[in-house]
Computed example of a mutant assay.
Amino acid sequence: MFRYYSTRRNLLALALATVCGSAGAADKGAAPEMPSWPTKPLRIVVGFPPGSSPDLTARTFAEPLAQALGQPVIVENKVGAGGNIGADAVARARDGHTIGLFINGNLTIARLLNPRLPYDPDKDLAPLSLVGVSPLVLAAPVGLGDATSDARAFLQAARQAGNRWSYGTPGVGTVGHLGTELLKARTGMAPVHIPYPGYPQVATAMLGGQLQMALLPPALAQAQERAGKLRLLGVTSAGRSALVPHVPSLAEAGVRDFQLEIWNAFAAPAAMPAPVRARLSALISEIARSPEVRAKLFQQGWQAVGSSSEGLANRMRADTAAMGRVIREQAIRAE
């Protein structure tokens, strides 16, 4: 399916050699040319459980990356702390063959809420590529009955329920957490936050009656909607999304000044040699834009991007500033 990556691999290898050779010619004191890379399997660390949205994205890229690099690509799940345990493992990696698939919270929000975060996204991680973006979907269990007839009815029921209702997220400081706190401020409802290891566990808790609401990724939300177990009430994008075209935006339900988007991206340890990072960035961006992977990402609930490393760095800065404003305005603190 990804035969053209063989040609792509050769071109990138040639480009890499040219860059390294030019650098050496320009600086007589430069170190010898970097040896061939990769020399062993590439490891993609994911900070969420198998079957989670980040895990599925990482595995979507694993096969074409393996074909392009000529080495196996292994996805390793290091779960906990809203993905920050996995992020820290990537930041500390020194083997030259480890990268990570991150949600935006790990690269933007985490540092704003946790002054003791063991890694610094700016200093310890190097952006590779923004690969997918998506709104979240406000979902509720069908067992709530008439309260789930539409978003307006649900928000009214939530206001009346006060803190007797609960909502779940993949952890403190994730986009789902900050987004729901902002939604609470915009609508006057007051559900209690309960963190879980990942979105699949949030959905399971909703089906079991432990939660009354959550902001879920579109693919997971629609799967449970098709099973007749969840109602999808509104998307967090400014307007309707192509990922869930039948679901109105929350703005249509009268929610003002509320817009939210999640994304996932690849980043490498800052210690990884720059030429290797450049090669991986180019490969990942190309793969994300391929028709096959674009289709797979769409099925998983993502609109493919495939940015440059600079594009991801710019998005990180913009979102850090935006989420910082939300945290200050709502006086949000790590639990």
Results as ranks from 00 to 15, higher is better:
Phe2Ala: 00
Tyr5Gly: 00
Ser6Met: 09
Thr7Cys: 00
Arg8Lys: 08
Arg9Gln: 12
Asn10His: 08
Leu11Ser: 14
Ala17Lys: 00
Ala17Glu: 01
Cys20Gln: 14
Gly21Phe: 04
Ser22Thr: 03
Ser22Arg: 01
Ala25Ile: 11
Ala25Leu: 15
Lys28Phe: 02
Lys28Met: 03
Ser36His: 07
Trp37Tyr: 12
Ile44Lys: 00
Ile44Asn: 01
Val45Ser: 02
Phe48Asn: 00
Phe48Val: 00
Gly51Phe: 08
Arg59Trp: 02
Leu65Cys: 10
Ala68Ile: 04
Pro72Phe: 08
Lys78Val: 15
Gly82Lys: 01
Gly86His: 05
Val90Ala: 12
Ala91Asn: 05
Ala93Glu: 06
Arg94Thr: 15
Asn106Glu: 15
Ala110His: 01
Leu113His: 07
Pro115Trp: 13
Pro118Val: 09
Pro121Ser: 13
Asp122Leu: 12
Leu125Ala: 06
Ala126Pro: 00
Ser129Gly: 09
Leu130Gln: 04
Ser134Thr: 15
Pro141Met: 09
Pro141Arg: 05
Gly143Trp: 07
Gly143Met: 07
Gly145Gln: 06
Asp146Met: 06
Asp146Asn: 06
Asp150Cys: 10
Ala153Asp: 13
Phe154Lys: 03
Ala161Cys: 11
Arg164Ile: 02
Arg164Val: 07
Gly168Phe: 11
Gly168Tyr: 14
Gly168Asn: 12
Thr174Tyr: 08
Leu178Tyr: 01
Leu182Asn: 06
Leu182Trp: 11
Ile194Ser: 09
Gly198Asn: 04
Ala205Arg: 06
Met206Gln: 14
Gly208Trp: 07
Gln210Trp: 08
Pro218Glu: 12
Gln222Met: 14
Gly228Ile: 10
Lys229Val: 03
Gly234Arg: 10
Gly234Leu: 09
Val244Ala: 15
Pro245Leu: 08
His246Trp: 11
Val247Thr: 13
Ala251Met: 05
Ala251Thr: 11
Ala253Gln: 10
Val255Phe: 10
Val255Met: 12
Phe258His: 10
Glu261Lys: 09
Glu261Arg: 13
Ile262Arg: 00
Ala265Glu: 02
Phe266Arg: 00
Ala267Gln: 05
Met272His: 04
Ala274Gln: 15
Arg279Gly: 05
Ser281Asp: 03
Ala282Glu: 03
Leu283His: 04
Ile284Trp: 02
Ala288Trp: 01
Arg289Gln: 15
Pro291Thr: 03
Glu292Ala: 15
Gln300Arg: 07
Gly301Ala: 11
Ala304Val: 01
Gly306Glu: 10
Ser307Val: 01
Leu312Ala: 06
Leu312Gly: 05
Arg317Val: 13
Asp319Cys: 08
Ala322Leu: 13
Ala322Gln: 15
Gly324Ile: 09
Ile327Cys: 09
Arg328Gln: 15
Arg328Lys: 13
Arg333Thr: 14
